[in-house]
Design a protein around this nucleic acid. Structure first.
Lengths: 225, 225
DNA sequence: GATACAAGATACGCCGTAGTATGCAAATGC
DNA sequence: GCATTTGCATACTACGGCGTATCTTGTATC
């Protein structure tokens, strides 16, 4: 396909610093701006229906810019998903890895997760759509690699919930259920927020926290013994 | 657009019976077969990415058949969604409208809802994708009408949950929360099943019921006071 | 101030697919 | 048994959009 493309590894680093990856997790400012625009476009139309020209509109630029930083539309979509997974891991990871009461930790994870969805709706809504759907047919080899990578990140985040649930069962705080199965409705209750939530102009922090509190309380109560 | 189309109201009724709508809810056998094929295609690729040729493949027919019964791709998609909503209403309606303990009724609704998702996965997964996403931009007038109609059906089903939750709060069975907000994680936990569930060849009825039992127990416990 | 390269704009080729026009055999009516 | 309509299949057109080739401008380097 694109074997002749040589310069498509993003912009060169400035200066003489030879550090191989100065900002591995999120790329440059420009790349993040592109991801933001892409997240908005994919959120509003879905991957297949959203055109790169629409992404460029949100960027106030043209397609040329996008293709300078990303090789294909699938690449861009995967990058949005990857970033969404990173954001999620950052939000819930600290509580997942902490010590202490599993029930309290699950509550904090759910609370933080919900607030994240509200704050970063475009990314999380795109992530909730999933990319398996769209890339499931006629995939190239590198698209399969992308899919595997993102799926692994997603599974990693889900595993954080599974682990906490398992701990909670061990301490007797939670009902004795299969942790992997029990994690499904938990994730469902949380991720569904990306579907129904609509940002309101004058919404206060307090109102958002009320939503997050209800969801966190709901999932903890749902597992309680 | 298609002002010249005259014969696109589906097949004529046979015989001389003049009853205007002999089978309003689901159409003819052939239409249902087309919907089944469309549901499978939309499930596997999403609306925008699924081609009508792919739908025709599942039908073991060609596009000509589809366009004989449905005017546009959007029409077909809306019909799949409409049927999904009808199936849902049939599954949960009886318990929603019954007398008796709201908690027990919510449990039965959730149980039936989950089993429905498992049994009719293509329809319910397509419905969970939603159509607002894909039709949100550049809609024609009749597409807007379709969207409104499906949204109303969806809202009706959600309202069934809201009502039961409200009753449960009144009887003291459920925590005192805003019913509309509380219904969100309930729907999320249930609908999420259409995302993660994958049919296994030798799965028993008992195994499916185990999933439905866990989800129903989860949502009831999540609201319990 | 000439050179080289980074960053992005523009224009276009090519492909997939929604929708249409038409053909055609089998059922149906008279 | 002839005419008409039904129920599709086939062939084709139109168009939107991905990806690419090429051109332009700004900026660092010597």
């Amino acid at each position: 396909m694109s074997l002749s493309r040589v310069n498509k590894r993003g912009p060169k680093q400035v200066g003489l610093t030879e550090d191989p990856r100065p900002d591995e997790k999120s790329g440059s400012d420009r790349e993040v701006a592109i991801l933001d625009a892409a997240a908005r476009a994919f959120m509003e139309m879905g991957f297949a229906a959203a055109s790169l020209d629409r992404v460029a509109d949100f960027l106030d630029a043209t397609k040329g810019t996008i293709y300078y930083y990303y090789r294909t539309k699938s690449d861009l979509f995967a990058a949005v998903n990857r970033r969404a997974m990173e954001l999620t891991a950052e939000a819930i990871g600290p509580f997942a890895h902490a010590q202490g009461d599993p029930r309290e930790r699950l509550w904090q994870m759910s609370f933080a997760h919900t607030l994240l969805i509200i704050q970063r709706l475009p990314y999380l809504r795109v992530a909730a759509q999933g990319l398996e759907l769209y890339l499931s047919g006629r995939m190239t080899i590198d698209e399969q690699k992308l899919l595997k990578e993102i799926a692994a990140l997603r599974a990693g985040n889900e595993q954080l919930y599974v682990d906490v649930i398992r701990e909670g069962i061990a301490t007797g705080a939670f009902r004795n259920v299969e942790p992997k199965l029990a994690a499904k409705p938990v994730l469902g209750a949380l991720n569904w927020t990306s579907r129904w939530y609509q940002p309101r102009p004058r919404e206060t922090v307090r109102q958002r926290e009320a939503i997050a509190t209800e969801l966190a309380t709901f999932v903890c109560a749902g597992l309680a013994s």
